[in-house]
Amino acid sequence: MAAFALGWLALWELAARAGWISRLFFPPPTTILLTLGRMLVTGNLAPALALTLYRLALGVAIGAGSGALLGWLMGSSRSVRLALDPIVTALHPLPKLAIFPIFLVLLGIGEASKVALVALTAFFPMVINTLAGVQQIDTTHWEAAANYGARGRALLQRIILPGSLPLVLVGLRLAVNGALMVTIAVEMLSAREGLGALIWLAWQTLRTEELYAVLLVIGVLGLASNSLLELTSQRLLPWKGET
């Protein structure tokens, strides 16, 4: 795989240098790497990355946190599930970016509207996976808990949380990936800072080497967040083994 990737990059480099492809739109990978280095040292990449991470972290914390809580609630209570499931099902497929102008009007043009959209994106995969996680807990566990008189907090701690955790973590992974995409998209739509804003500016100025450099950073960001979640899964679910 690594050999294939390196070969592909070498071919790209050769094609760009030889003029077989447009260097304006497909600058050589070495140029992209040099640009990335320059942006890291002298440019505004670090503050942009920090701001994007802040929006992502805050949005995921709010969205995934509330999604998990609602998922557990819906999983534990049939009446809550019956009441809210149609609403969740109806709202989940709505294109989040299409709602952004409404958020702007409701929450203003500052950070709140951007973070709210990221949170909304993180919310749905979390609530659906958490609910599924509770629903797939084996009935014998419920029966055992009932026989031992487990209720409320004990039921949550002993049965619901550990039983649903594998799917909760899958939901968190989906939530982070979706939230990252929406964070970048929102920044492209309305922000003057952040990685998405850098992508927008790079395209506006047709400095495509900067565009690819930022895309590379986003790719690494996605890889890092997924690796972190994988590591968390291994720590919290040692019995599941490596997924």
Binding site: P101, L104, V105, G108, I109, G110
Partner: peptide
Amino acid sequence: TLTALDPAVQGEALRSQQV
């Protein structure tokens, strides 16, 4: 301070004193 605005919400932003 220059603030990026979608034309659809610019009037609301001005009226609600966001800009």
